[in-house]
Design a protein around this nucleic acid. Structure first.
Length: 555
RNA sequence: GCGCCUGUAGCUCAAUGGAUAGAGCGUGAGCUUGCGGAGCUUAAAAUCGAGGUUCAAUUCCUCGCAGGCGCACCA
């Protein structure tokens, strides 16, 4: 399924070359590369002002310099020329030039109406694209340290990762979610965890840890064994919450320790040594990352003989590359950003294409209540856990709120608004649209308005022509936009587009609902509007489904 | 000190280099003998500052100012 934006670009290209051939526009001479860049810079977007059309293209503005002609003149020629292309009538009622040189496209109502039947027919498959072409992509997220409860920062990455995986799948990628379990017995954190348990340290002392510990009858003598056993227990707890409480799906759980058990780490260290990128200093083994632009070299093996986290991360990521993913997407907290450069350098040293690796850095989250930051948890005496937050505001709200904000922005989670179970809360605003639609559908079915249902099922759907109210057409346009939302998000990973879109869609629906009655004496019109709300329901469910937010039938 | 991220309406956030910068909350004014008023309409209200690139800058570049994060033989 090709989006209309792409179609517009194709039509523009066709029209422009035709115009050049007919000498209505001067010819231009660009290298193949320059032409490619040129077409990439051409956009077909939705103008903010609806009077300016449904799509607008900047093509004439871009051509002005190349053709040495005023952009408005070019726009006029293109508008005339493109209107003559045969397929154009299928989509547009009008195409015209506008100052300072935009080409504006107005969708035809017929084209819009046809989509209603298509949406209903496709059902939850509507929105599925093929742009991924089945390419394998991997997303790794959360990967929390098994030393304490899952945090709200884990939640931000977890929900974003989960949703991006859904989107990549819908866009036609073969997307897998993986969780990296930080359970290496060689790590300091496992030792510190063991020490904490045995009362020989208190780095990870917490209410949470005491709770896990209560389940253990045996006494540990060995620090490492104690650390490993409790880490396992914590991982189990994380897994269970992730699956059942936060509804985040993973395809694989990858154990860090397994990289030691099968000698992957040792092999990587040997390989790096063989390439000549390591050296010994002060009893430690170093990787010459500074030769590839890092500020300094990094330690691979500590003086005590234990490999660092950097080593196992190199082993882990080269393992990912060997599995043949076209894209390797990682969600990391802002406190890890320093690690990004050296990991990419290490991958390059090993000969992998580090541009396939996308690391999304998430800035920190603060909880704000009554204008103040809430830091302390009532129960745990430490930071508020993700579980507490979800218990407090509900999963739908938690997911929606985390998704609303772009990853690279510091996020203030508004507890007051989140806890507001009313029209004030944007989540309920969207869900209310679902409930309203469901209520009307139920009413139509209960009243046995069989004629309405029957008419709405007609293949020809000539009754859809009755949909001509502005709010009806605007709603259809918004339904269509889902395809672009999915396409864009699969390309740039900006998942905040989804909640934004869901709000806009709900708004268009509520607007329609306030203006147009679905059930009326006019059976034909009722049937047409019935089709429209069925299509709206499909799209609402789809977008909420992608976000992992429920679409309630009643509230 | 160095590196990364961020400064948009009173608050929380949007805005693939485009035309009049959008939402929600809050504030003001309205709308219903009918499908769920948890709705709709409407008003006031914003790009941190100074330069630069561009036909066009919230967006790109430089320099300030402010906030967050990082700068381990921790993970």
């Amino acid at each position: 399924m090709i989006t209309l934006r792409e179609e517009i670009k194709n039509l523009l290209e066709k029209a422009i070359y035709k115009a050049i051939k007919d000498k209505k526009l001067p010819d231009f001479d660009l290298s193949e590369k320059a032409q490619e860049d040129f077409w990439r810079s051409i956009i077909a977007e939705h103008p903010e002002n609806k009077d300016l059309g449904d799509y607008a293209s900047n093509v004439a503005l871009r051509l002005a310099k190349i053709l040495h002609k005023p952009s408005m003149e070019i726009a006029k020629v293109i508008a005339v020329e493109i209107s003559r292309v045969k397929e154009v009538k299928k989509y547009f009622a009008k195409i015209e030039a506008a100052e300072p040189g935009f080409v504006n496209f107005y969708l035809s109502p017929e084209y819009l109406r046809k989509f209603i039947a298509e949406i209903i027919k496709k059902g939850d498959k509507f929105g599925d694209l093929k742009i991924g072409k089945g390419e394998k992509v991997q997303l790794e997220f959360i990967s929390a340290n098994p030393t304490g409860p899952l945090t709200i920062a884990n939640g931000r990455g977890g929900f974003m990762g989960d949703v991006l995986r859904n989107i990549m799948k819908t866009a036609g990628y073969k997307a897998e979610a993986e969780y990296f379990i930080n359970n290496s017995r060689h790590s300091n954190q496992i030792r510190e965890l063991g020490k904490t348990i045995l009362g020989k340290g208190e780095m990870y002392k917490s209410e949470y840890l005491s709770e896990r510990l209560a389940d253990f009858k045996i006494k540990f003598n060995d620090i490492e064994e104690a650390g490993m056993a409790i880490a396992d227990e914590i991982v189990k707890d994380h897994k269970e919450k992730i699956k059942n409480k936060f509804k985040i799906k993973f395809n694989n759980w990858f154990s860090e320790q397994s990289l030691y058990d099968n000698d992957s780490v040792q092999k990587i260290l040997l390989e790096l040594d063989k390439i000549g990128f390591t050296y010994k200093k002060d009893g430690a083994v170093w990787l010459k990352t500074s030769e590839r632009g890092d500020d300094e070299d990094r330690v691979l093996v500590r003086a005590d003989g234990e490999p660092t986290y950097f080593s196992s991360d190199i082993a882990y990521h080269s393992n990912k590359f060997k599995r043949g993913y076209g894209k390797i997407i990682n969600f990391w907290g802002a406190d890890h950003h320093g690690h990004m450069k050296r990991l990419k350098i290490a991958m390059e040293i090993l000969g992998y294409d580090s541009s396939k690796m996308e690391i999304i850095i998430m800035q920190l989250v603060r909880l704000i209540e009554n204008g103040k930051e809430v830091k302390m948890s009532k129960r745990m005496g430490q930071y508020i856990t993700l579980e507490e937050l979800v218990d407090e505001v509900g999963l739908d709200v938690a997911r929606f709120f985390f998704l609303m904000v772009s990853a690279d922005r510091h996020m203030d989670f508004d507890m007051n608004l989140a806890k507001e179970k009313s029209e004030k809360n944007p989540v309920y605003y969207v869900q209310y649209a679902c409930a309203r639609i469901n209520s009307v559908i139920k009413k139509i079915k209960r009243k046995k308005l069989k004629t309405v249902i029957k008419i709405s099922r007609r293949e020809a759907n000539e009754n859809l022509e009755l949909l001509k109210h502005t709010t009806e057409l605007n709603l259809i346009k918004k339904l269509l936009e889902l395809l672009e939302i999915i396409e864009d998000t699969a390309r740039d990973f900006q998942v905040q587009r989804l909640p934004q879109y869901a709000i806009e869609l709900a708004r268009n629906f509520h607007d329609f609902y306030a203006q147009c009655r679905v059930i009326s004496d006019d059976k034909e019109l009722s049937a047409a509007r019935f089709s429209l709300i069925l299509a709206t329901q499909t799209v609402l469910r789809k977008v909420l489904g992608l976000m992992g937010v429920s679409a309630p039938e009643e509230m």
